[in-house]
Design a protein around this nucleic acid. Structure first.
Lengths: 340, 340
DNA sequence: TTGTACGCGTTATCAA
DNA sequence: TTGATAACGCGTACAA
């Protein structure tokens, strides 16, 4: 048995295909009687209209494409949750794809989604300039694009993310208020948001008249977890154990912060008595950690929801938009035991 | 500017649409010269064939639908990773949807995916009988279905998951070997895999001649995290603090296990000296926890990969399959500090 | 109120 | 080697 079509119903009921089509969409042209017959038949035989054919016909797919780096990242999956929530009550379905931090894969994702006839795209781009031509083309083809999270991307369009400067500033200031003066900032290489977070870190130091020490700013590659681990370990051993000149660590990302905690435990360095720790992190188990981890939390769900709403608004706009808005949501500093 | 079509190219190059189509698919019927002209023109003008039209025509969408309960769950997102990896090198694209543990939403997901013309479906069902009629219909319509993770579902089809009995048995046995005899098993309500895990737990106790105490088996509702937390806390206070008759806890899921750790920290109960902890958990930061958490790890990525391969195989099978296989992968017991 | 005819963009068959 | 034509399933202007 293959799938039921309008034609099948028409044949069975001895009426025309268009009558069936109209009856199912509750058209005013059709009599209540036939509507009822058709709709009941459809329900009984579990008729599902073919979206492909429908989209092809009306030139809209009611689909939104989403490209993220990696689904298996707490922060990202929380954003996806928000996207799902916002799209739930709309006519739009969501298709997710992963770029895996690779511009070529990202290009492929864009192509695939485009071929699928998405009505709009939401993307957290790999880098600040990645696939900018492709994205421009989408917009030219009147497929709106919203950029989220990595809002330093150069494309001129709607953007939704957080105020990374302030988030980093607040975290650093908190450590300073706890009497820490030798703070190590660990961040990632080629991380779009890193620069603003570094700026916030520096600004907080500067405002407290603490000189910025180059040695207390470390960039880690992200090639593999092993690399990341050994790199972090190396620097902690050097700066904390050998030179004894660190009293706090500020991690720039979810992964860095949690890995750091693990390494400190492994090296039997007591948190927060020997070293205080705080970092950007959206892991739900921050409170379950021992010691409970102080974090800069990004409003992930909200980012997803706002981005989705913005995109849908833009899709439904009849005339092209030329004035774009960048929304920077505030982060939230949650102080727990690891930095007290 | 709207999107380019075969027609546009044909018009521009003064050849027929079918010639363009054949040239682009590198047909042997077309001369090298025209092929070259067409392909170059297509590349230059960034032509993307319309997949909707293509799928409609050939009756295959080269799309696989995936339904999971909740993307923002470590274990689930690891499975999705595996699915992505396995599909990467194939012609198939993946569409994810979330059921949020709700059978009606799950039904809606199935309908949407079906309307989208998926060639196959992978699903971790909400419950053991959820939407069984819908799924049967899919199979009747020759759209293969593979069930993963929640392999206790009653539908007769391919299933890929883990051996929950053995995973639970191993964890419990390990605790017993550490000299623990009063083990609390915390599990979830309406959790498909709970029963097998409970059986494994009981079997290990029985094999060590330890009687099973009803009071040491707790089911938690999953309505909200707050409920879960307070329920776990309540039972720990009663059994550990008041009656002092627990020396170990075995958590049945990722969420339960990590929440338990948090609550123990909050109550200032020392792990593992006062209470040993082990549990099913796929969180990547188990090693980063303090104390490092002993876990029963499920081969999530592998589950995703195998399920995907099985599904694609089935899709490409010309004749319907009537003998289905259930693959139960082994779990891995990783002993860390929390249970030593 | 219902039916006919056409087109969305593609592929496949067959004729030129 | 190329092109005309039909068809996939649906929606809609127009005719009946």
């Amino acid at each position: 048995m293959s799938r039921t079509t309008l034609k099948d119903i028409a044949l069975e009921l001895n009426i025309s295909v268009s009558t069936v089509s109209k009856a199912l969409s509750d058209s005013y042209e059709i009599s209540e009687a036939t509507k009822k017959t058709v709709q009941e038949y459809a329900k009984k035989h579990n008729f599902h209209p073919n979206k492909l054919a429908r989209s092809l016909k009306i030139g809209k797919s009611n689909t939104i494409g989403v490209i993220v780096s990696n689904i298996s990242n707490t922060f990202v999956s929380q954003i996806l949750d928000g996207i799902q929530i916002a799209s739930q009550q709309t006519i739009y379905d969501i298709i997710f794809m992963q770029s895996r931090e690779d511009e070529r894969i990202e290009k492929n994702c864009i192509d695939v989604l485009r071929m699928r006839g998405i009505d709009g795209l939401m993307i957290a781009p790999v880098s600040s300039g990645s696939n900018i031509e492709e994205l421009k083309e989408l917009i030219k083809a009147r497929i709106p694009v919203v950029i989220f999270d990595r809002i330093n991307h150069k494309l001129d369009t709607f953007k939704v993310g957080v105020n990374n400067f302030k988030g980093a500033y607040d975290a650093t200031q908190h450590l300073i208020q706890q009497g820490k003066r030798n703070i190590l900032h660990i961040t990632g290489k080629n991380l779009g948001v890193a620069e603003e977070r570094l700026n916030g870190f520096k600004a907080a130091l500067s405002d407290a008249n603490i000189p910025f020490d180059e040695k207390h700013y470390i960039e880690c590659g992200f090639n593999s977890t092993v690399d990341l681990d050994s790199r972090i370990k190396e620097i902690i051993i050097k700066e904390f154990i050998d030179h004894k000149n660190i009293d706090a660590i500020f991690g720039a990302t979810d992964v860095i912060t949690t890995r750091t905690l693990g390494i400190l435990a492994e090296l039997q360095i007591e948190v927060p008595t020997e070293v205080a720790v705080i970092g950007f992190s959206n892991t739900q188990i921050a409170a379950s950690l021992n010691p409970a981890l102080s974090t800069v939390v990004q409003p992930a769900t909200e980012i997803g929801e706002i981005a989705t709403k913005k995109l849908i608004d833009t899709i439904n706009q009849t005339r092209p938009i030329h004035e774009f808005e960048t929304i920077e949501l505030p982060t939230q500093l949650i102080v727990r035991k690891s930095s007290l």
